[in-house]
Amino acid sequence: MPEETPKTAAHHAAQYDFAELGRAVVRAREAAGMTISDVAESAGLPEPLLDDLERGQGDVDLEVLHAIAHVLGVGVGVLIVSGESGQQL
């Protein structure tokens, strides 16, 4: 696999489907039987941030995704999926 350059990394990030990330978070949260408030409180995050994430709005860093994944009992890779194929990256 060719090495990713900063230019190709930026291109992939620009094409990433944040709506799919949001749907993955919703699926994991619902599977865990938690509300947005439950996850936000347990992860130490503002509820509006999690609400925006689930709606595919804005962006989050890996630290935030790790906190959410930890609370939901899943790996970060479960949340980070390809918007086109639905497969884990």
Rank of each mutant, 00 (worst) to 15 (best):
M1E: 11
M1S: 12
E4T: 02
T5K: 00
T5A: 03
P6R: 06
P6S: 04
P6A: 09
K7Q: 12
K7H: 12
H11E: 15
H12G: 10
A13K: 00
A13V: 07
A14Q: 05
Q15K: 14
Q15C: 06
Y16W: 12
Y16V: 13
D17H: 11
F18W: 11
A19R: 04
A19V: 15
A19I: 13
E20V: 00
E20S: 12
L21K: 11
G22A: 03
G22Q: 03
R23Y: 03
A24E: 13
A24D: 15
V25N: 05
V26F: 13
A28P: 09
A28C: 04
R29S: 13
R29V: 00
E30R: 02
E30W: 03
A32D: 08
G33V: 11
G33F: 15
T35S: 03
S37E: 12
V39G: 01
V39R: 01
A40F: 05
A40V: 08
E41G: 10
S42Q: 15
S42C: 08
S42W: 08
G44K: 12
L45F: 05
L45G: 04
L45Y: 10
P46V: 12
E47P: 03
E47K: 00
E47R: 07
P48I: 02
L49D: 06
L49M: 11
D51M: 01
D52I: 00
D52T: 13
Q57S: 02
G58Y: 07
G58N: 01
D59V: 12
D59P: 01
V60K: 15
D61Q: 02
D61E: 10
L62K: 05
E63I: 14
E63A: 15
V64F: 04
V64K: 11
L65G: 14
H66L: 10
H66V: 07
A67F: 05
A69H: 15
A69S: 09
H70G: 14
H70T: 15
V71D: 07
V71P: 05
L72C: 11
V74E: 13
G75K: 13
G75M: 13
V78R: 12
V78K: 07
V78W: 12
I80E: 13
V81K: 09
Q88I: 14
